[in-house]
Design a protein around this nucleic acid. Sequence first.
DNA 1: GAGTGGTCTAGACCACACG
DNA 2: GTGTGGTCTAGACCACTCC
Lengths: 238, 238
Amino acid sequence: MKNNKYLTIYEEMVEQIKNGTLKPNTKLPSENDLVEQYDTSRETVRKALTMLSQNGYIQKVRGKGSFVLDMTKFDFPISGLVSFKELAQKMGKPWKTIVNEFELIKPDDYLQKHLSVTGKDSVWKVLRSREMDGERIILDKDYFNKKYVPILTKEICEGSIYEYLEEDLQLKISFAKKEIYVEEPTEEDCRYIDLQDYNHVVVVKNFVYLEDASLFQYTESRHRLDKFRFVDFARRGH
Amino acid sequence: MKNNKYLTIYEEMVEQIKNGTLKPNTKLPSENDLVEQYDTSRETVRKALTMLSQNGYIQKVRGKGSFVLDMTKFDFPISGLVSFKELAQKMGKPWKTIVNEFELIKPDDYLQKHLSVTGKDSVWKVLRSREMDGERIILDKDYFNKKYVPILTKEICEGSIYEYLEEDLQLKISFAKKEIYVEEPTEEDCRYIDLQDYNHVVVVKNFVYLEDASLFQYTESRHRLDKFRFVDFARRGH
DNA sequence: GAGTGGTCTAGACCACACG
DNA sequence: GTGTGGTCTAGACCACTCC
């Protein structure tokens, strides 16, 4: 059980914003007020406020105060990493995952380069179709370095691999690079996606890194054109 | 002239990473070493390191140290907000902007909702085609709230509106929400994009907010399928 | 001038990695 | 145990907004 004061403050305030105790477009108590309220130091309060700001909950304005943002404008999760399961649940649609292929392979050159593994390492390869409203609209191709994921079963693949990795294996995913583009469908796409007349697919490539900066997963998510949607929420750096 | 110590440290270290003084996959000096090196306090050093980490330059590992990441893996700008001008320059290709339409309009219902303006406000509407290798491959539709952008000229539109807003008008852009999806081309797309046989376009919608959380710009960027590419670099929260 | 958030300091203790 | 980064404190001064 962690005991981070700033995290506690952050989570409490998120809760208050979500349940309406703190209303959109109103001013938050000043940092000094919060110091008294939470009986802590100012830097700790500020750390919580910075997190709220970075996650799109509030807006800090020097000399004036911090203001609650209207989250209803942003009807999507403030995050670039959304699993299919989350997405489907959010849309309230029935969905299904079909495991097409599931095996341990020796990586080819392309994979060796992208996963930073040698030909001697083993790599899990998982091909899954995602079905919604009776149509297979997404093909997910996942590759995991066996060094980090020693055990994987077909049952896990039918659920959320993502949850398995984070919750069961306790792998700490730290950052991901994403590339999105459009290309013509491969023979594989035709086999595993109900393409109808669409003659292109949207490809989302994901390179997932662990906390120690080692790449452990490479994913290609191939979407039928009409069912693709991506939402991103970006803050400006300096 | 600002005099942020932590920003100075951050910028110096970015420079050292870029020019190779700090090499990929090596360990940084410890925080305590850096405190001595820069004659400052640990929290200040940590602020700089946190920024480096958030911007993908380093990776901090508790109990071990901070490590320089191999930026060559991430051959694209670490940012979701890339202007066409930046992109074209990075690719080293000749490019041109054609201003198709440029006028002050009264917002319709759709715009009123998205720009949070009333029917009495005025809104700048700018339609620009982006040309590369002699083909118009992108149609940019920009709408600005006149309240924030009182003056706009055709000349500015032919360059980078983005730079004009930030550098000349000193508008501080704080965050942006982005939506990406694919749809069939409109009559407008056919007129202003050299679509060839492609019967879909990739639409990137951008909602840009100022520091006080007011929405001042709504942009639609419509790309020919084959010329579309989006790169994103996401850190995990918490 | 009073109040706000932004930066900075010099300490302290903790959790974790490694030998 | 030693060294690392993670959290926290109780101050201080500054830059900005508003009255």
